[in-house]
Design a protein around this nucleic acid. Structure first.
Lengths: 160, 160
DNA sequence: TTAGATGCAAATGGTTTGCATGCGT
DNA sequence: ACGCATGCAAACCATTTGCATCTAA
């Protein structure tokens, strides 16, 4: 097994990018779900619009649920969880758990590093490209399925 | 703020290594706790012996609790949790949450990448040194408090 | 019509906490 | 003796699940 000499973090291991130029018919959220093999139900379409209608986003089940409520969309928190899981499974979202308790869902499904603001419980993309000089070889008989890099940051001077 | 040209993952951001050569008096676990400012109670000493008596280890509260039980140490799971938290806070352990649910505690407190075996729910150190070609600059007014790199791996051929 | 999606509430699982009792200093 | 540590059970919180009801195909 040969070493990988130089791997750009933002290029390695990316799943195929979401088909950006689908054969347009119907609203984009509807199409997006169709293309992913998900039945475009009312609540799925509405959540997809919230999620994919405004560039890259990082949501939790709670924040998305609150957003939906604010937009007068009526659905249950359990459905938000289920939908986020289905979207993740379909490759539309990427799940990230920076602190071991709450989970975030990232609409940018490429492999890229994140900043996690320790005090503020917030996740943001690292704007720069992070480069790993060398990707370690996985254990014999294993393959790398995923790469998570989370850089915890905090306000300067803040203790703990 | 200038860029960090080349950062070895196993050297950057390490807290001062645990004082390996303390002024020897009493068993090592006892001293270790004393030096960390923790009152060396019976259960703390016993857990410290399990944790620090056999090289680098990755435990969960449950596995450590089971180990203690197997060693005929009588304590409650809550105490294991509390003790692990206290040890972590004292810098004797490092907490890692690879899958967003269960937490692992690593006796190697240096910053180093981990393999997480997706199917087997197991965490192991990456044997090689991982090199980041460049460390991203944190957000203005912030500083990096921690760096987590988790490489998820799975048996070749295993689906999902 | 019917397989699959939703809503709700209840279950789950890891972790934390409150409070009375115990133990290290 | 004093004060922190422990044990237990109950609380907690994010997340999942069971089941009856709906709805997109």
């Amino acid at each position: 097994m040969d070493a990988h000499p130089e791997i750009s973090f933002t290029e390695a291991l990316d799943p195929e990018p979401p088909a950006q130029g689908e054969t347009g018919d119907g609203p984009f959220a509807f199409r997006r779900l169709r293309d992913a093999g998900l039945r475009p139900t009312r609540q799925r379409v509405l959540l997809a619009e919230l999620l994919f209608g405004q560039g890259d986003r990082h949501v939790t089940a709670e924040t998305l649920f609150a957003e939906a409520a604010a937009a007068n969309i009526q659905l249950s928190l359990a459905t938000v969880y289920n939908t986020l899981n289905q979207f993740t499974q379909a490759g539309l979202l990427r799940r990230i758990g920076p602190d071991g308790s709450r989970s975030f869902f990232d609409t940018n499904t490429t492999v890229h590093p994140h900043f996690y603001l320790d005090g503020e419980d917030m996740l943001i993309d690292v704007p720069e490209t992070l480069v790993l000089a060398q990707m370690p070889d996985p254990l014999p008989g294993h393959e790398i399925s995923r790469l998570d890099i989370i850089i915890h940051i905090r306000r300067k001077g803040a203790d703990i």
